[in-house]
Structures are given as C-alpha cells and as structure tokens.
Amino acid sequence: MPSVTRQPFRTAVLVLVWGWLLFLVLAPNLLVVGASVMTRDPGTFIALPLNLDAYRQLFDPLYLEVFLHSLYMAAMTTLVCLLVGYPFAWALSKLGKQRQLLLIFLLIVPFWTNSLVRTYALKMLLATNGLINSALMSLGWIDEPIQMLYTEGAVIIGLVYLLLPFMILPLYSVFDDLRQELLMASHDLGAGRLATFIHVIVPLTLPGVLAGVMLVLLPAMGLFFVPDILGGSRNLLVGNVIKNQFLDARNWPFGAAASIVLTITMAILMLAHRLSKQRLGEGGAG
C-alpha cells in the first residue's frame, strides 16, 4: 500500500489535537486575559472599554487583606508540607526497594480518592463535639472542647491533608536519585553530617523542593471547598474570591484578574524550578 497522499492519518491526528488544544486551552486562556482588562457588564458579563480597573481592585484593602490571608495560609500549608514531607521522603528513600514501592502506592491511594470526602472526614475529627475533642475529654486532658473547626488552623490542616502527597512525591524522586556516593565523598573530604546536609543534600534536593512547593502552593490558594467545609467565612482562599466573583457577583474582570495573578505566581515558580534543575545540568533547554 504505497501512500500517495502525504500521510492523511498524520494530518487528521494533528488537526484533532491542535483543534482541541487551541479551542479548549489557548482560546479560553486568552479570553480570561481579555476579560481581565475589560469592564464588568451585567448582561454580557464583559463590555468594551479597556481598562485596568480589575487589577486596581485587587489592591482594594478589603480584597488585599483576603489575598494576603490566603497567601499566608497557602504559605503555611506549603511550609508544613515541606517540613513533614522532607524527612518523610528522605526516610522513605532509605528503605528497601520493594517496601518503597508499597509505601508509594499507599501514598497515591488518597490521590485517587475523592478529596471532598476526605475533607469531610477531617471535619468529623475536628468538630467541636467531634472525635478528637471527645477523645481528649474522655482522657481528661481537657475540660471543654477546643474550637478547631472554622479556624485558620483547620483550613491549613485540611490543605496539608489533601496536598501532602504532592509535596512528597517530587521530594521522594530527588532523594531516590541522590547518589549515596556523593554523601560519602562529602564525608571523605572532611564534612560532618550538618555540613554535608547544607552543602550537598539541600542543593541537590532543591529541584524537588521547588517542584513540591509548586504543586502545593498553587492548589493551596485555589481549593475553595476546603474553607467552605472547614474554615467558615473568615478564612477564604483566592479560589473562593474567584469563585464568588465569577458565579455570584458576576464580576468577570475582577475574577479574571485574580486568576491571572495565580497564573503569574505559577509561572514564576516554574521558572525557578527550571533554573534550579539547569544548575544541576539536568534540565537543558528542553
């Protein structure tokens, strides 16, 4: 079967793939960028006069406070994930290969289970008359229940609970790649445990740290259902603001501007990640 026409199958595949991505990825994103510089309109959502009002509105003290609070909670979430995940990934990478595979499997099970349901499960534990409070009271450690639900802490716990595997997996991958020989070389050259950690382990695991931060920090600003379930009305995420603006207040330019801020944050993190990999001579230009 000599192909006379120039690979019609190839053309069909490329048209389908490009069509899909252009229509459902590129076009919508351009639309959001466009919307962010337009004017709010109750009927058609956006109208013409181009302006930067939406971006200006981001600096409105009312929203700025929400954003900063969200950023703070996301940063805390990321920090906790890093502090928990770093030693975890390290310890994991030191186990036998077979056991590592099993434990990694156990780590991705939650990723495959409904995050709403898991957030709800957390609520059962944290509620005022929930299991943790009842357990502590029956042990006699506390006299009256601690308010855990609907606090900033609850939101952070919920985000950590959902996002921890996303921090651990990239960290595990860099620890798994960390050659034992390099640590031995460091000791051999006169470095103790602390010096080896600072000069060798930390720089070599940095790409994993940044990848983990990227995978945790951004969702930690967007997962609006976590504060909805655990946080009450005072602990909102950027995600809640975007959702409210788009679905309730119908202020598209403002919601779009907020989401662009998220995207820019993502771009910066991705750039940092790539640079850190290039420093190790892995990333290259690709």
Binding site: M184, S186, H187
Partner: peptide
C-alpha cells in the same frame, strides 16, 4: 574514627563529583 576525620581520601568509582 568517622570518614571526615580520617587523614585519607577516596577517588570514587563513578567520581562522585558534586553536580551543583
């Protein structure tokens, strides 16, 4: 004595140069 305090050094099989 731990390796860091021994007055001898090693050339490793795969060199073990610090990539960063």
């Amino acid at each position: 004595t731990p390796p860091e305090h021994r007055p001898l050094n090693t050339v490793f099989q795969h060199y073990a140069l610090f990539p960063h």
